[in-house]
Design a protein around this nucleic acid. Sequence first.
DNA 1: GCGCGACTCTATAACGTTATACAGACGATG
DNA 2: CATCGTCTGTATAACGTTATAGAGTCGCGC
Lengths: 338, 338
Amino acid sequence: MAVSLKDIAERAGVSLATVSNVVNGYRPVGERTRQRVQQAVDELGYSPNLGARHLRRGRTGLIALAVPELNNPYFAELAEIAISEAAALGYTLVMENTAADRDAELALLGGSRRHIIDGLILSPVRIGREEVLSRTAGSPLVLIGEGVYDVPHDHIAIDNVAASHAAIQHLVAIGRRRIAFIGATPGGDRQSAHLRVRGYREALAAAGLPYRPRLVARTDAFGRPDGMRAMRELLALGDPPDAVFAYNDLVAIGALRALTEAGHRVPRDVAVVGIDDIEEGRFSTPTLTTIAPDKREIGRLAVRRLIARIEGTQVAAPLTVQTPFRLVRRESTGTAGE
Amino acid sequence: MAVSLKDIAERAGVSLATVSNVVNGYRPVGERTRQRVQQAVDELGYSPNLGARHLRRGRTGLIALAVPELNNPYFAELAEIAISEAAALGYTLVMENTAADRDAELALLGGSRRHIIDGLILSPVRIGREEVLSRTAGSPLVLIGEGVYDVPHDHIAIDNVAASHAAIQHLVAIGRRRIAFIGATPGGDRQSAHLRVRGYREALAAAGLPYRPRLVARTDAFGRPDGMRAMRELLALGDPPDAVFAYNDLVAIGALRALTEAGHRVPRDVAVVGIDDIEEGRFSTPTLTTIAPDKREIGRLAVRRLIARIEGTQVAAPLTVQTPFRLVRRESTGTAGE
DNA sequence: GCGCGACTCTATAACGTTATACAGACGATG
DNA sequence: CATCGTCTGTATAACGTTATAGAGTCGCGC
């Protein structure tokens, strides 16, 4: 079971160090010995003990991706991309679930996994700039999502304000005037929800539409039930909206369901736009118009940048990258004909 | 940054071994020294280096959950449960994605992660009994899902045949006669798809309905697009079905979409039943009737059993556990009134 | 024939932890 | 007063790896 370098060394009749050199290619080894060692490795089925290697090298080969909800399809899709990118670069990516819990985010930031993990990709939702700044330097950190800016770490995000603009402009272009927003959060001011609200307000202004605070619905979380609840509240308003822009696709799908149950037609009575472009929105009834971030780009960039930091090949200043997005029109805002 | 036992020992003026004993409570330590050591630990913010501990103890405290698709909500929901259960027991669970790839499953079985992981929970889809049997004993293994039986490992699953029965009986009870199945796989004979087909056939027979091979649709995978494609094929048949039982909820949702696009009414023209009870099915239009496995039970049981094996407290014979399920009626088979 | 670099390979000291064996002090016991 | 056990604490050898320093051997130029 436990076959170690020592076993190989004995079998091949060479020293420990030589085997190590063959396995790692760290130093040149004569062709004859190399072959003998390689044969022993194959025969005994040796694989290096990563724990020991870590202890010696100070690196584990593990990186973590910490997200606020594992079963938000957006993060699941992102994770799948990140995992394969990490694998391609020789790292193993482990998922960590913060459950949108402030303490969990702080613990990760503080290095609770410090000895296990070479670096961390974090999607923060409950912590802000100060908390990140107060981090006592640990392993490399890459931020994704839009919560925190102006910190000395790499940061990958879409331009939330611009994304909101695009959504609102689209709704205005199809003739909507009373446009609601679902998914504002009570606290947090550099949070992405806040940014999306800001984009919403700016775009309304640009279109010459009034900003009606009653059309901005708060939610505690960002799941389907939250969208459904908020939509019901909006419908209970004396003068309900004729369009809804949701914090994300899950919220939008909750809203869709509330509309259907209440007997409203989508998009005729109310048009709906989400963000994330999860697969579910391509199969819902009606299908969901959405702002599609480039998940592939986000996942790959985050992993590459983190690994570059870990390996120290790139000591350049931290960079904030804004990845592209596009508007995907589907039934919930009327297809071509409508 | 790197504060080790040695630093604590110096600070507290005791030996390395004593600090270790305080930290682990392995041996009694005098009250006075204990306090001095504890204080040093707190002041310097020591946390043990898990790699080194592993090297010494032979355990990492990591367990893996390997699933065929990370972004199938069923597995995402299961993962969330398993992660918190593992955390409660002092383990960290890492997700592994086999991508329904035979080689990936074999690699895990063969112990590709052997040095990193204390144990593995695997949901196999491409390998069968023989492959599992040929495993050269490695770390403990718990199987979930329904692919493989009669192997010397713990195995947690629902009774697929019984689940299929329940679904078909329900469809028969609401008056359906031409019931299709979507999600048969070409190969594999102990695979869960096969078992579900068997339950489908048996239940048809029990209800006195004929088995029509043309109503069994094959799919390459088990996602929304597969369900959609298969449903279209069924609709193209001269005499289409009046009900569909799908391999899982995702496939069912794909079928739902195909039906909607083709202008069929659900459940009036065609009723649909899935398996998994993912949240998406509670918000789809129409909402989806489904066989709901007890995900909480599955996740917790799998983790507990694996950890019991790892810690050797339970050397009893491997056990196959069938967890309960129930039928959840929703709109896709007609609600109470229909 | 001697010195020197180039080329292979080896011996060994870490990395941070835990388990084992042992040492010293102190009462109690014969 | 010798003997024994108990109670604390320490020294040290692993665990499997890699990096460093160094030891041979060979060929080549002077």
